[in-house]
Write a protein that binds this DNA or RNA. Structure first.
Lengths: 234, 234
DNA sequence: TGTACATCAGTGAACGCGCGTTCACTGATGTAC
DNA sequence: TGTACATCAGTGAACGCGCGTTCACTGATGTAC
């Protein structure tokens, strides 16, 4: 991350980010499937072959865009989280912040949302680097639970639920990774809230509320508020 | 639906379903984006142009496949529902049947699931006829709630939740369509369960449990069981 | 029952498209002495 | 500071691909009298 020294290096960075910016715009406009090196080159008034000085293939460029999408969403979530934790407030109020930020981001970046949570591009393997922003996102979402638990405000017995050893082991990676010192029951509940959250946003974004739910925002808020109760934040 | 009269009509129906069968196989193999009239024609040993006697365009064929996918899923759900209602059993046990059938169908038909609940094909409008199987699916899912309510076994106050007029109006199409005589609170809860269900299946199918949940089936069952409690079936 | 005409499935060639990627090249920028 | 060489961004032409769709046609099937 040191400052580029030579003029060549400086120009290289500039051109790289110009390519990414145009590619990002095309992605936002038409989706990943329609992303074409030639049309990006056309808009940049370069020869198509010139792009190969910057990205080794279309897939490499798409990987960069996917990573950017993850990072953009994670940034948004972390900022929303930081904002709500900067001022005093109840757990439920804090809980709501990240889901809302995610929904707002999704509505503003539908194709990017689709890239992350929609149909995987066939024959395409997601870049490994996405685990970092993915973890940041999950961390931001879950922080209200963690803080409430630490302060002994988390309700642990809202609903009856038995966790057997199999289930406990099944979610062990999350217990060990994301949550320090959280009983498996709460881990399962958090993962259920995660499923609900992704589901409710995707259903809205992919058009399934048409003729079904007239005010998706009201329903979304109610759903997230309901999840707050279930995970013990009320 | 009368029996075809002439030999020509009989052959026409046969060829149409052969085309659909091959198209279905290609869809299952490579996904909707890769669906190509020419490759279908190749496999059928026909000229590509011949397909235009049966489908007016690639989009028309894709529409037929989408409709088939909806109907296949709805059939599966209704059969699972009928099976579990044919024998005595508790509400929670009955509730579990359709979600499990949906998950099993999704695992067996991932590309079809993606067609219904994944990223919408850009620039493509879903055929209107899908509302019928969609309603059948939703009806099968929700039947345990409806029956429990009718028999006065549905718990109406599991969790605190306020439904204001805005939210009530927002879900009115569902209240009027799918649910006869159900309070809006239960309608909202059912829609939340729907979001959770679609979310948990999509997350598994689209690869988001990798390195996260080791036994997706255990987690799925726990999630559906949790939903049963929330919607008042336990 | 036989004949004349209409209908329609299927062919094969062609159109025009945009795509990702390669390759030999030019000319500018950077580096070593 | 000046020169010789290496590095590297960008060009332009070309390759080979598969695609959806159109169109004039052939020949078999169906229909009306």
């Amino acid at each position: 991350m040191s400052a580029p020294r030579t003029a060549r290096e400086r120009v290289r960075e500039e051109v790289t980010s110009e390519i990414l910016a145009v590619a990002r715009a095309h992605l936002a406009q038409d989706g990943a499937a329609a992303l074409s090196l030639r049309s990006i080159a056309r808009q940049l008034e370069m020869a198509p072959s010139a792009l190969y000085r910057y990205f080794s293939s279309r897939d490499a460029l798409l990987s960069a865009l996917i990573l950017e999408a993850y990072e953009s969403l994670a940034d948004e979530a972390e900022e929303a989280s930081a904002r709500v934790f900067a001022r005093p407030g109840g757990d439920a109020e804090r809980w709501v912040a990240v889901p809302r930020a995610m929904r707002t981001w999704a509505l503003g970046h539908p194709h990017e949302w689709a890239l992350i949570f929609g149909t995987p591009v066939p024959g395409y393997r997601a870049p490994e680097d996405t685990v970092v922003p993915y973890a940041r996102l999950a961390g931001a979402l879950v922080r209200p639970m963690v803080e409430a638990k630490r302060a002994d405000r988390l309700r642990m017995d809202v609903l009856p639920m038995e966790i057997d050893n199999g289930l406990r082991d099944a979610v062990a990676p999350v217990t060990d990774g994301l949550f320090a010192d959280m009983p498996p029951r709460q881990v399962v509940l958090a993962l259920q809230a995660w499923s609900t959250l992704i589901g409710v946003i995707s259903l809205e974004l992919f058009g399934h509320w048409r003729n079904t739910i007239l005010e998706p925002e009201l329903f979304f808020d109610a759903t997230i508020a309901g999840a707050a109760v279930v995970i013990g934040l009320v």
